[in-house]
Write a protein that binds this DNA or RNA. Structure first.
Lengths: 228, 228, 228, 228
DNA sequence: CATGAATGAGGGTTCATTCAT
DNA sequence: CATGAATGAACCCTCATTCAT
């Protein structure tokens, strides 16, 4: 889901085996990860503007010069952090959608996983920071949204179309819109309080379950085949 | 709705009458408004960090010294801007809710007004800026949310309870949650693309109407008295 | 002659009289002079690149911020130093040319004053620095040459034309070229050793006199009306 | 003439023969030349300060470490470049002076070759760069002048003395001074406009010829045996 | 012995804040 | 009391030089 929520599961920063030599400048994946990890922590803690490159070098344990060999400038570094995010959540969501269980259950599990992730502390912080730099890095924010947040609904969309084909859902005019509707409905009343910091902690699992249950009920009430 | 979208209609900054003399330092409401207006424009245009106090003095037509008499620092000034927001949208929403029309129509108009406002360019910019400074000013963001964004749902909540009492809606366990659900459902699929800049312009009136219509249908399908 | 050789005889940095107030930002001529004087010393001592803005603030006794109020950047500051040069040498040269004395004497005095100035330590240092930054500030170097070094020959050119009219010189095809020829001839064998630092001190007055005398002899031998 | 105008025709960098092994550290003349060639190109293109050691390693195709084995630092490297200059112009000038032709013709050809070389783009660039670093490397600039620019006049000086002996010139008090006078007279009105960038391109051959012709006329008028 | 990744002091510049006027 | 010139710490970034590989 790539909402800056989880560290990348990049190939784990192992140095290219076999060749005894030192890696090329700016090409040592271990060091690169080291920098990204440090920068990730700093950016998360302070936000983009308040994070200084000095802070980052300190946290990452590299020198300024090295930093600038690996990343041209602060924006590039930040963008790299955003882009390396390939959250494990996607895999989980896919698994849920592929299980052959009652529609209501699948939707419930999907919505729960989706909501839990997007409202987690790290995901929320990531979203906030990206929103904060949107004036300077609009492309980045857009990409972040498309490859992150929006991926869940895309997956769900395919699933819903299959459900329609199987007759479990009424025919849908605009499945992508419906799909997003479901996602937002699961987070309804929770997303923005979290984003604006009114809700300091992620909601409890019970709270999320309840919200999602309500969403599923509403959703199936509206679009379910046998419903209403 | 106070999403930084509209200038305050504060009591118009009239100087305290009677005393012929000059107002005490930092107490002239006219000057205060003048500063807030200028700062508001600058912050909206550039965001928090990119706005310099120099820009603000220029736009407001006051000197640095004066600025610092009225506001201790940049954060205080920003906070004052956020807090004076009392958008006219609230009045409009109240009017809609007080009209004695079919429930579906009222919900439709309410949702349309609510959504249109929250997705407008100025409101979106305001929300982004507040989110961007949340690490430095967490209280402010929280306040911003409570006195802004969340006011619509609070109003709707009261309305819904009356509708339950009048038998137009099924009994509701948690009306505030339902109310927020409705608000977020109206913006479902639109809010976050706007916030993250993927959707560059506010959605068209038609697009919003369609979204809201779908939301109302779903909502009444789930909670309407007669079932839809 | 403006070869960075002498401090400007600007209106001596007196503050605008009458108005008791403080001068506008970046407009106090006293402070401006103070900065220019300090920067002048530093640039002269270290050259352009080796002079840091920190050095200059220290020498000028102003803060970084102030420096940047008066001058947008390092290049602008340097350009201002170059451009304020309005050497007193021009006046002296003009006086010499206006005296009604034998041509040989006038040329001798003119050549001596011209050469003495252009080979002085400060003028030489100024020329070197300008040459050193020519890649980054080509316009400046060109201007420096035209309004400085080249002014002497321009004045002489007019003088020579009058002498032709008065029959003291043979008719001249290209008086500007001849004029420059005379100037360079006066410095012949001295200019480049000075510029390249082979000659550490300015030549003695006797050395210059001798050089100029030789130049005048050659010049009048070639262009003088009566021969010899 | 060694005005940085041409690459040296050094003894061609052949490796010391006989020893089959690898040359001692910093002693392989081939590698040394390779470095000097690359550095020469870079310095000429960018000037001293703007040239980075990285640029030089890239252009020369050697590593940083190697560079620093052969040259202690940037200044040393630059000095080495200056000092290896042994321009082919000297040979040409010598040939001209050895031809047994009328004095006027010899002087004309000599002056033309001398002037053309010293005003060429590469020679001018070289002179500028040396002048720009004179504060940091005063000895270097002095050497540059003595072994470069000044060699022409030295050669001419010998020639003139012979001409005096042969009765083609009047007896001369200070032949070196006269010799320099002639050189500078040939470039009169051209050298400094070129150096300061006011004249963007080298003067045309016609322009130079004209200038030199005028110089020769003046010179022979003053010092020629039959003259005046 | 060659390599080039790493270093970190120092560069120019900005701007929130202060305080003499 | 208003003013805005002055401050100086902190910003991002470069690059000559070093030293582990």
């Amino acid at each position: 889901m790539s909402d800056l929520g989880e560290a990348a599961d990049i190939e784990d920063g192992k140095r290219p085996e076999g060749c005894g030599g030192r890696p090329a400048a700016g090409e040592d994946p271990v060091k690169r990860e080291q920098i990204l990890d440090g920068a990730h922590r700093v950016f998360m803690r302070m936000g983009f503007d308040a994070s200084s490159m000095n802070d980052i070098t300190r946290e990452a344990g590299v020198s300024k010069g090295t930093l600038y060999v690996y990343f041209r400038n602060k924006e590039d570094l930040f963008a790299a952090i955003i882009q390396r995010q390939k959250s494990k959540i996607f895999e989980k969501l896919r698994e849920i959608l592929e299980e052959d269980r009652p529609l209501a259950e699948v939707l419930h599990d999907f919505g729960t996983a989706f909501t839990t992730h997007l409202l987690s502390e790290t995901a929320i912080r990531g979203q906030r920071i990206v929103i904060g730099v949107i004036d300077r890095m609009p492309e980045l924010a857009s990409t972040f949204f498309q490859t992150g947040t929006n991926t869940g609904p895309v997956m769900l969309c395919n699933f819903l179309e299959k459900q329609v084909a199987r007759g479990r859902l009424k025919p849908i005019e605009d499945p992508m819109m419906i799909s997003r509707q479901f996602g937002d409905l699961c987070m309804a009343g929770l997303y923005r309080p979290r984003l604006f910091g009114e809700m300091r902690e992620p909601p409890s699992a019970e709270r999320i379950e309840k919200n999602v249950a309500s969403a599923v009920r509403l959703f199936l009430g509206g679009y379910g085949a046998g419903g209403a």
